[in-house]
Nucleic acid binder design. Structure first.
Lengths: 247, 247
DNA sequence: CGTCACTTTGAGGCTAGTCAACGGCGGTGG
DNA sequence: CCACCGCCGTTGACTAGCCTCAAAGTGACG
């Protein structure tokens, strides 16, 4: 747990300590911290497995930033099966896919105990007008998410998708050799369009090859080059990797 | 062919007649026409099956708008197989997925004889600062594209994907009962992650059921409700449909 | 100690991909 | 004018990867 998930009623002053601002600064090299503090509702929200942050079809009132934990967005089809559309880690913005039509296109719930800040779309829009850098950042993350979605939408094998997922999570979690995943295999499968059995079998297969070792919901990557070879076809592991390739 | 594909050297004045501006006005209800004319290079470009508009890995110099015809973006994997990432019709913006990292993430080529206008990213950025409505529109189309990509990335059957594709194209082409597709079955398959044989078989299957009738690269939809039933699971057919559902 | 959620393993089936072959159509050149 | 060629669409037979169903093992927690 990278962040204390206890509700915090005096969150306003905490914004300076907010991992989101540091994440944003780190990722973009800019300092939009003040800009964000003007729109981000200090109301911190926590959520174990409780009621969703928002639901599909809701009029979109806000965009959310993750401060700690892990949030998933998902849809539920007619048969009640849930499909996870994205995992959001500290520093990520949730709800960008709904900006186009003003309606939430998924549900959002916590994977682990999490904290989010709320950025009402009205205030955000206004602020984006006076803070071009902020508008730029929102557009860029939306663009990055689009690029990621397009990359993931290819028809790749279970091994390719899983390898790409693991490397992407390693980059985003900034972990060392050992990767502690917030979500279970069921959720991974739902996200990667694989049955949980297939996720398990494929991971075990990687382990048999000595490419990683599986612990209790933690994974130690032992042969990233081999995994990268598989993931390469998918194209995008992370923004960082992508930039490095272009250079 | 909705638009003359002949190169036009005096395109500047034509911008007022540009189908893109009318498309944009129709889609958003606003009048960003003047704003666009300030950044859009009047240089119209035509392309049959010639050299790509840009290539994967190119430093992104511009965003493009489609004036006429149909442009596809695609990637080529290590084995030389091409995968189509998107079809772009008049009024669409090309290159939004590259804004996040400043590099083109796909190649772009013409499906049919087409015309595009060029919006250099520098000028676009500047203009977006002075024209919040324009920035808003760019963000919204990026968001819509993200939503579409997320919807299409699900694991749907060949029938579901094809039905969704047909209805989406019908909406976007604004055609009547008969749909004249700019692309062949090979391209459709590449876009939907289906073998061309599967595309053909599925279409024939639809025809046998009386849901559509196939002509030479034209399709007459005879039972849209049935197709819509299949496509429903995919979630997004068009922005319009999505908005209607939310209402 | 029992429950519950998650993971693991096995057996079998189905969707869609692959391989192969053919018909139609348009262009090209003899 | 017609033979040839290549591309596209079509159809059939076979294959493979992944899903489904079933069941047992594991750990957390009351």
């Amino acid at each position: 747990m990278p962040f204390d998930a206890t509700p915090n009623t005096r969150a306003h002053t905490d914004c300076l300590l907010c991992p989101v601002t540091s994440c944003m600064a780190r990722r973009n090299g800019g300092d939009h911290a003040q800009a964000w503090s003007e729109v981000l509702a200090p109301r911190t929200a926590v959520m174990p497995g409780a009621s969703p942050l928002f639901n599909t079809g809701d009029r979109q009132q806000a965009v959310y930033t993750v401060r700690g934990g892990c949030i998933k967005t998902y849809t539920v089809d007619a048969d009640g099966n849930e499909r996870i559309r994205g995992f959001f880690l500290p520093g990520d913005l949730i709800g960008l896919d709904g900006l186009g039509c003003g309606v939430h296109l998924s549900n959002a719930a916590a994977v682990t105990a999490s904290q989010v800040c709320v950025a009402p779309v009205g205030g955000l829009r206004t602020l984006m007008q006076s803070q071009p850098a902020l508008a730029q950042r929102v557009l860029e993350q939306t663009s990055r998410e689009l690029a990621h979605a397009l990359a993931m939408s290819g028809d790749f094998s279970a091994e390719q998708r899983l390898a790409a997922f693991l490397l992407n999570m390693r980059d985003r979690l900034g972990a060392g050799g050992t990767l502690r995943l917030p979500m279970g295999q069921r959720d991974i499968g739902s996200y990667l369009r694989l049955a949980t059995e297939t996720v398990c079998r494929t991971l075990k297969s990687f382990e048999r090859r000595g490419w990683l070792s599986l612990g209790d919901r933690s994974i130690r990557l032992l042969n990233e080059p081999k995994l990268g070879e598989l993931a390469e076809a998918v194209g995008i592991v992370s923004g960082k990797t992508e930039l490095a390739r272009a250079a």
